[in-house]
Simulated scan of single mutants.
Amino acid sequence: MKEPVAELKQTLKILNLTEAAQIIDQSLMEAEQAQWTCREFLERLLHYEIVRREEKQLARRYKWASFPELKTLDEYRLEEQPSLSKRQFQQLRELLWLEQNYNLILLGPPGVGKTHLAIGLGIEALKNGRKVSFVTMDTLIHLLKTQLISRSSQYKVKRLLHSDLVILDDLMFMAMDRNEANMFFQFINKLYGQTSIILTSNKGPEDWGELLGDQAITTAILDRILHKSEVIQLNGDSYRLKYRQTIFQNA
């Protein structure tokens, strides 16, 4: 019995059904004990292969995304965000905007949940089979400036450009010189029309020109980002301050 099973396992591997090959011995025993039909046996074996492939693909997409932390939409405190209705929240979650290559611009002061919302939507996109990449603005500028001399930077920029969704966190956190602003424009131009962007910032588009340092470049960037976009202004108190941890015990 061992030789035929070994041959069957090898055949499964040749057909690239490697997950099924790992459980073929156990599956044959269960099939015999439970008296499965041939159809039931094949269905269970192939179902396992599909489930394991999907799990591995999802794990790879998570690794690709490079989220700084995992924050889901289920954990988002929508009741504490007065500027976003439950209906709007659900519409964002359905990802129709992503299917239509829309951009989301999440504005608001620090601590109101911009990054949490962006990551949560990114996780939803991952679960729907999309490639997502998260990058802070300062990291992006560093990658763009070093991609010609660093294979690592070149690879990471290429990965960003091949994503279905790019999350740019803390846009306008730091001022750029003209060269940096031009590189950022070239990056946005390559994403334009093929990749959706979620952009978080504590400054509105009307203030971007001051930080980019060049009005012509600012206009060109805004033209591409705002062409198909939804601007969401988040308000309220800082979650970080409200739910901060303390070293002191409650008196």
Rank of each mutant, 00 (worst) to 15 (best):
R39A: 12
I50G: 00
Q194E: 11
K156F: 04
A175W: 03
M174I: 12
D25C: 01
N202Y: 08
I50M: 07
T11P: 00
V112K: 10
L144S: 04
K9V: 12
L104Y: 06
V157N: 02
K2D: 13
Q26V: 04
D170A: 09
K86D: 07
S133G: 01
L143W: 14
K203L: 15
F184H: 08
Q91K: 14
G108T: 11
L106C: 07
N202D: 14
Q154M: 02
L84S: 06
R39L: 12
L107S: 09
Y192F: 14
L126W: 10
I141T: 07
S83T: 15
L98D: 08
L199G: 03
T219W: 02
E3H: 10
G209A: 02
L78R: 10
V132G: 08
V166S: 02
G213L: 02
G236E: 07
I198M: 08
E80H: 06
Y239E: 04
L107W: 13
T218E: 09
I197K: 05
V51Y: 04
S229I: 09
L106A: 09
S196V: 07
L234H: 06
Q22N: 14
S238R: 02
K114M: 03
N250E: 15
W208S: 05
Q154V: 00
T72Q: 06
F67W: 10
Q22P: 01
K131A: 07
Y62R: 10
T195A: 13
I123L: 15
L96C: 01
M137P: 01
K242V: 05
W208C: 09
K190P: 00
A20Y: 14
H227T: 04
T200H: 12
L95I: 09
I105A: 02
N202K: 13
T72V: 06
D207P: 00
Q233L: 11
L12T: 09
K203A: 13
E32V: 00
T200M: 10
Q88H: 13
T11D: 07
R178M: 01
R240S: 08
L160E: 05
G129E: 09
Q100V: 00
L144F: 05
L70N: 03
W36T: 03
D74G: 04
Y192V: 01
Y62H: 13
M183Y: 15
T219D: 15
K203Y: 15
L222M: 14
K114A: 02
L8F: 11
T18L: 02
F185I: 03
P82G: 07
I198C: 03
R151D: 15
G129I: 11
V166N: 04
L95F: 10
Y243M: 02
L140V: 09
N16C: 03
T115C: 05
Q88F: 02
I221K: 06
R178G: 00
Q154D: 08
Y192I: 01
L234G: 03
Y102F: 15
F41L: 13
S83I: 03
I221R: 03
E49M: 07
Q10P: 00
G129F: 08
F173N: 07
F41W: 14
I221E: 05
